[in-house]
Amino acid sequence: MSDSNQNNVCEDGHAHRLHPDFSEGDVTFLSKDGVEFKVSGKPLAARSDVFKAMLQMPQADGVDKTGSDGLKESTNKDSNSHEPIHFDVKSTVLESFLAMLICPIPMMPATTFEETCEIYKMCYKYECANNITEMGRVRLAKEGKRHVLEVVRLASKPGHDDWHLGRLALEQLEDQDFIDIFTMDELRKLPSAWAGRILTTAYWGPRRGQFIDEECRLPRPATVLEYPGIGNWSELESEPR
């Protein structure tokens, strides 16, 4: 068998197939389930600082390079002979992510909650423009109380620390839902700064969107809630992380 046939099989054994809506461009991406996406590098560079740096990086002929961000970069100068850039996500996720970056008017296609989480993480990893990341935030926040714990955990991850997403998610909750979901056991799993803000929100009234503002200030109290286990706050603060 020729080398070209071997190159058309990805690591998990799937044969490569070209996505019909992403069939032209100077950059090729490959999903983990073996779907290739050919796109123009210009909109990618305009909306992602990581892609901009990657596409402008001086490269030597015929050498493959894996960057610190996990991208496998092809370094042949002839774009037609480039190896695909591998992404460890399914084609449905990569399709939605690339569509957000290359469309003249960015739009987020319909996605499942799990796909939206992956897209949101990719927006941070590849340092996408804020209007792109904001679409992921809004989609996650619309999940309401069904997935609010997962959304807050995602927002509070090191490297994200996304207070804006946290506020959007918590605004969806009614007072009692808020208390039922964010138990002391769940708060202990969050970074202490986030746990403290959430407890403060419970005291000041979550329905008014008073989680935190851009200057980390809270308004005058409008309501006081009975929060179970509030006497254990000192224990929560001393919990080893």
Rank of each mutant, 00 (worst) to 15 (best):
D3A: 10
S4I: 12
N5T: 08
N5V: 06
V9A: 02
E11I: 04
E11N: 11
D12Y: 13
D12A: 12
H14Q: 13
H14N: 14
A15L: 07
A15Q: 15
H19Q: 11
P20H: 12
D21I: 05
S23T: 10
E24N: 10
G25L: 11
F29I: 03
G34T: 01
V35W: 13
V35L: 03
E36V: 09
K38P: 10
K42F: 13
L44D: 06
S48D: 12
D49A: 13
D49P: 02
K52P: 01
K52V: 01
A53P: 11
A53E: 02
L55Y: 14
M57S: 09
P58V: 02
Q59T: 10
Q59E: 14
L71F: 05
T75N: 05
N76H: 07
S79I: 10
K90P: 02
L94K: 00
L94P: 07
A99E: 09
P106F: 01
T111Q: 03
T112G: 05
F113Q: 00
E114K: 00
T116Y: 03
E118W: 01
I119F: 06
Y120M: 02
K121G: 06
Y126Q: 03
E127L: 11
C128L: 06
C128Y: 05
N130H: 03
I132E: 13
R139E: 09
R139M: 07
A141W: 06
A141N: 04
K142R: 15
H147K: 14
V148E: 02
V152L: 13
A155K: 04
H160I: 08
H160W: 05
H164C: 09
L168K: 05
L170G: 02
D175K: 03
I179C: 12
D180Y: 05
I181P: 10
I181L: 15
T183I: 08
E186P: 03
P191G: 06
W194C: 10
W194T: 12
L199M: 15
T200M: 07
W204D: 11
F211T: 14
E214Q: 11
R220M: 04
A222L: 00
E226S: 09
P228Y: 00
G229Y: 00
W233V: 15
S234D: 14
L236R: 01
L236T: 00
S238A: 13
